[in-house]
């Protein structure tokens, strides 16, 4: 672990830390509102470090659904990390050993990945440095949100519960605006999701499985209609 690289990573990760803090505040408030204890809520953020996955996991827990549903939702929702980890692995090169790779893997979030890939000469120390501050922001924000969740008035808590949705909107809409295939992906998921919400028989399907089906169906159709050429080829 090189200290200089680690510190450079921490510095680069500061904006991510601030962003995570505010969004995870919403997650904390929401989880407590759904009946989780403050400690359990913080534990989820500290061990998972992922927004969409935790959010879906919360739905599964709140519904008291089967464990297999938890595994399925996490696999599908977090499958994008598999792609990012692949790209990261290529980028780090064969000289980086398994031990370091196992540590780097934990911190591979969308934003840390973006920072890492933008780094001229990427080291595991840099990635872990950025990842540490990001994780601190994420876990700290969750803790504060969970604690405040029981103190803040219901009207404020309810408003904060929309924060994660707001973040998802902020990620999806600009992409859909720029790329037609992304717009199709969004619209398909939107239509499928509405079907599962409002069509009588389909609405009986649990929330976790609904997200899995909508995601797989929309992404598969887009992959057939608009296949992506070699991505991130260096």
């Amino acid at each position: 672990m090189r200290i200089k690289e680690y510190l450079a990573g921490m510095k680069a990760g500061m904006p991510v830390c601030v962003g995570y803090f505010s969004v995870s505040f919403g997650f904390g408030a929401m989880a407590v509102a759904q009946g989780l204890s403050v400690w359990n809520t913080v534990l989820i953020s500290a061990t998972n470090l992922t927004s969409a996955g935790q959010f879906a996991g919360l739905t599964v827990i709140a519904a008291g659904a089967a464990i297999i549903e938890m595994i399925l939702t996490q696999l599908v929702i977090n499958s994008r990390y598999a792609l990012m980890s692949l790209a990261l692995g290529q980028r780090l090169g064969p000289e980086v050993g398994v031990g370091k790779r196992l540590i780097a893997a934990f911190f591979n979030t969308d934003e840390v990945f973006a920072l890492a890939m933008a780094r001229q000469k990427l080291s595991v120390s840099f990635l872990v440095g950025a990842g540490t501050v990001a994780a601190l922001g994420w876990t700290g924000g969750t803790a504060l949100g969970a604690l405040a969740g029981s103190v803040l008035p219901l009207s404020v808590r309810m408003a904060l519960g929309v924060m994660l949705y707001g973040m998802f909107i902020a990620i999806v809409v600009p992409q859909a605006r720029e790329e037609k295939p992304m717009l199709l992906s969004m619209l398909l998921a939107l239509v499928f999701s509405c079907l599962f919400a409002w069509v009588p028989v389909l609405s009986g399907v649990s929330a976790g499985i609904t997200v899995v089906i909508c995601t797989v169906a929309a992404a598969a159709i887009c992959a057939l209609v608009f296949p992506v050429e070699q991505e991130g080829a260096q």
Binding site: A52, Q175, A189, S193, C214, T215, A223, V228
Partner: peptide, 22 residues
Amino acid sequence: RFVRSFLHYVPTACLTAMTFPA
């Protein structure tokens, strides 16, 4: 190419399905 493309579209589809109509 299919698997690569599929993974490329997963984030958008997933976040959308989770947001609307929830």
